[in-house]
Design a binder for these strands. Structure first.
Length: 584
RNA sequence: GGUUCGGUAGUUCAGUUGGUUAGAAUAUCGCCCUGUCACGGCGAGGGUCGCGGGUUCGAGUCCCGUCCGGACCGCCA
């Protein structure tokens, strides 16, 4: 045994014991006659001390220890004369009897401290050092805790964990596939799964009834702070269920996680909102409902008064920002620039200030009387001291722009507190999405999503209006999970494929295995998948999922620690029957 | 594919209209220091200013190109 205790364990109750600790040297503080040495491991940090009473060898050994040396120390637990209330082991220290350097260390490229001096790139390159730091270490511990609680809850609810293959078949719908060449079948390729979607449905046909898996998924698309090429889902599917059975089961999972991991109890069921309400009120299919500031349409009040911008717009609407009537010209200009960014692309921003003295000032005073503007204010629920921000233009874009402006104002007014959690089910998504470029419908969720059956008659008349029996879980404006009731009827599935522009042959070629399975008695089923990395980040109060992944990739999909992707040898290429195009 | 911000000491950054020997903090090393815990004091070493080209008497600074990194748009069923 290298050690008797961990570095986070010793308390006043241990005083007088002889102990052996192992860990990394965090910091050596020499004070002339005495030396303090902090030793650290996953569990915590303990102060070691050598002074005049220590043997000469101990004193000189301690002085040779540098940062991040791996050391073993034998000593006696003593009470500190100066206690440190900031750390759990702060009442005691270990008087060193013997210290051994198990391994020395080069000087690390950044400091191993909570507030490190290292930038992101460097930390990624030396991720194994970064993980020694508390913030990253704690993120991984949190992730472990969440995973364990997921398994505990789902196991209790009779779900079983089944592994599905990673080397599968490329499909045309959805994200770009990562592709793996086959040596034994030259010229052919596996694809890595974007999710185990079809396999979990096959498991339902196979009678497993309730399946889950905490599983890696792969999508070859450009990255963001909350998107990695490989990420983890909590993937679930249930048989003989309707939508509400699923919502309640997984609302239960979320409540369990919030309680066990965060100590937060939800007493009421999660709010539910239709996709169309989410878009009209929040300009987003993943609204942050921690704060109000809902969008209001004012077409009927704003049009026909001679202001050409509004008169010609498909949609006029705005948000009421509480208490911001005092915003300066400069602040309003900033907001105008914000909505004019190419990412939002608005033409401009109209403001109406409801001043404290009861007067109303706006950027469109020329066109609207104070009475007109008062009508806007009362329609938008504004009161004295509030600021109305109005945008106009094409309906969808303007709503989305207002949605982004709303989030920006929420940030500016600190209305998006990290420790407040507002979960929300968004339901009744459109089944199909029209793509202008290819002039065809795409499945908004995936091709196996069931329409709401009362809408199914619209397949031939107005397919774009069909609502899907699909749902997303949104927490604090982050899409945490989504799923649907699946089609289990062959005729309906064929209508769906037809709407997506698949011929019978194409459908057979791509999804024949699933359609075949459906010939042999598919139960009604549905499921959901949660973004595990995002869920952990939300629990940790962070916008970036990277700290919750032990070894993440950077913006360009590179692992800067192992330097991948990388070349492979000509021998490997030959074996695979692959020749490379010349780079230009 | 696009927009935008950045790249200067091991690290995080500053560096004025283009002008002497490129600075600070921190880390590192040395000396001093008996209760530190962001220890303190004194001192030292440490630079391909991402790379290439251009403008100029003179470029860290201006221009062009390129590489790398961050955020975002497109994309992500």
């Amino acid at each position: 045994m290298y050690r008797t205790h961990t570095c986070g364990e010793l308390r006043a109750a241990n005083i007088g014991q002889s102990v052996v600790l192992c860990g990394w040297a965090q910091k050596v503080r020499k004070l002339g006659g005495m030396t303090f040495l902090d030793i650290r491991d996953r569990w915590g940090i303990t102060q070691l001390v050598a002074d005049e009473k220590s043997e000469q060898k101990v004193q000189s050994d301690v002085e040779k220890i540098g940062r991040e040396f791996v050391i073993q120390c034998e000593g006696r637990v003593v009470e500190r004369s100066n206690k440190n209330s900031k750390i759990p082991t702060g009442e005691v220290e270990v008087a060193i009897d013997r210290v051994v350097v198990l391994n020395s260390s080069e000087i690390p490229p950044f400091t191993i401290e909570d507030d490190t001096d290292g930038g992101d790139e460097l930390r990624m390159k030396y991720r194994y050092l970064d993980i020694r730091r508390n913030p990253v270490k704690n993120a991984l511990l949190l992730r472990h805790r969440v995973a364990q609680e997921v398994r505990k809850y789902l196991d209790k609810k009779s779900f079983i964990e089944v592994e599905t293959p990673f080397l599968i078949k490329s499909t045309p719908e959805g994200a770009r596939d990562f592709v793996v060449p086959s040596r034994m079948n030259q010229g052919e390729f596996y694809a890595l799964p974007q999710s185990p979607q079809t396999f979990k449905q096959l498991l339902m046909v196979a009678g497993m009834d309730r399946y889950f898996q905490i599983v890696k998924c792969f999508r070859d698309e450009d990255l963001r702070a909350d998107r990695q090429p490989e990420f983890t889902q909590i993937d679930c599917e249930m048989s003989f269920v309707e939508r509400d059975d699923i919502l309640l089961t997984f609302e239960g999972l979320m409540m369990h996680l919030f309680k066990e991991v965060k100590g937060i109890e939800f007493t009421k069921p999660f709010q539910r909102m239709s996709y169309s309400d989410a878009m009209t009120l929040y300009g987003s299919d993943k609204p942050d409902i921690r704060f109000g500031m809902e969008i209001r349409q004012i077409d009927s009040l704003a049009k026909g008064k001679g202001f050409p911008v509004f008169d010609s717009a498909e949609y006029v609407g705005g948000i009421c920002v509480p208490g911001c009537a005092s915003y300066s010209r400069k602040q309003i200009d900033e907001l105008t620039l914000f909505v004019q960014k190419p990412q939002i692309g608005a033409k401009g921003l109209v403001y109406v200030k409801l001043e404290q003295d009861g007067t109303i000032k706006s950027s469109v005073d020329k066109f609207y009387s104070p009475e007109d503007l008062k009508a806007w204010a009362s329609h938008m629920g504004a009161s004295t001291g509030d600021l109305l921000l109005i945008m106009a233009g094409p309906q969808k874009r303007t709503l989305e722009g207002l949605g982004q402006l709303r989030l920006e104002m929420g940030n500016r007014l600190n209305l998006r507190e990290a420790n407040t959690y507002a979960p929300l089910w968004v339901v009744d998504f459109p089944l199909l999405e029209w793509d202008e470029e290819s002039k065809r419908f795409f499945a908004m969720h995936h091709p196996f999503t069931s329409p709401i059956l009362s809408d199914a008659h619209l397949f031939d008349s107005d397919a774009g209006a069909i609502r899907a029996n699909a749902y997303d879980l949104v927490i604090n404006g982050v899409e945490i999970g989504g799923g649907s009731i699946r089609i289990f009827d062959r005729t309906l599935q064929q209508k769906m494929f037809a709407a997506l522009g698949f011929t019978q042959e194409e459908a057979e070629h791509q999804f024949g295995f699933l359609l075949n399975a459906f010939r042999y008695g598919a139960p009604p089923h549905g499921g959901i998948a949660f973004g595990f990395d995002r869920l952990c980040a939300v629990f940790g109060g962070s916008d970036s999922i990277r700290d919750y992944i032990a070894f993440p990739k950077n913006n360009s999909g590179r692992d800067v620690m192992i330097n991948s992707p990388s070349d492979i040898s000509q021998v490997q290429l030959n074996e695979l029957g692959i020749s490379l195009k010349d780079k230009k």
